[in-house]
Amino acid sequence: MKRLGKVLLYISLGLVAVFQIFPIIWLFLFSLKNNQEIFSGSPFALPTEFRWENYLKVWEGGIGTYFWNSVWITGLAIIFTVLFASMATFAITRMKWKYSGLVLGLFMVGLMIPIHSAIIPLFSMFLKVSLIDNPWSIVLTYTAYNLPITIMILLGFYYTLPREIEEAAIIDGCSIHRMFFRIILPMTAPVMSTTVIINMIYNWNEFVFVNTFISSDKFKTLTVGIQNFIGQYMTDWGAIGATLIISVLPILIAFIFFSNKVVEGISSSAVKG
């Protein structure tokens, strides 16, 4: 009886896993098929031959540009966010100043702000300073909007850092800047890597800002790019499948290698909220 119960539990957990993963496997399967196979065969069948040409076709058809835009915009925004967030967290946790509590509050409230409430004014602000249809508007907004969550993940780690090391550095005549860049930042490498991967997921997947601020194809990132692109290939399921797989692959690969960091980042970003 007890054994049977256990087996049932495993079966139900397994079914949930199938539900979670199968649509993605199905997507991968049809990205390697042509329409004839997709429309006449079973959706669960393996492709008769692996049509990698679907991938070549969409990459050369313009996905490549979107892909590289995503890479550099995501990367640059990560560097800014993690650097500025580390500096701010350092100042909040390690320095004594009058308004540190208030400033921390401003960052934490930022976690709850729905971006849609700010997007119309942001659009008109960027329009005034001619940053509409300029990728810098995206880099700046990504940096700003990811600061609160990044600071929240960093905070816990900074609170646990021993003060003795800093004190010793100061006594040895080390300046604050030197201490921050040479001692504090390297010590926080584990938590920084968590914030990097969380930022990477957010930036790579972001849609609304790019959709609103960018109109030229040459600046679009993957999320918005694939939207247009799929319009062109309306009925070519293989091409659509290949496009989607290309767009999600970098994150999935990162997840395979750093799944523990992702788990850590997601749980620490939510639980304290």
Binding site: V16, A17, Q20, I21, P23, I24, I201, W204, N205, E206, F207, L222, T223, V224, I226, Q227, L244, S247, V248, I251, L252, F255, S259, V262, V263, I266
Partner: peptide, 11 residues
């Protein structure tokens, strides 16, 4: 279970 959470809403 977490995999879908990693994909963009567009995808």
């Amino acid at each position: 279970y977490l995999v879908p959470m990693l994909l963009s809403s567009v995808a």
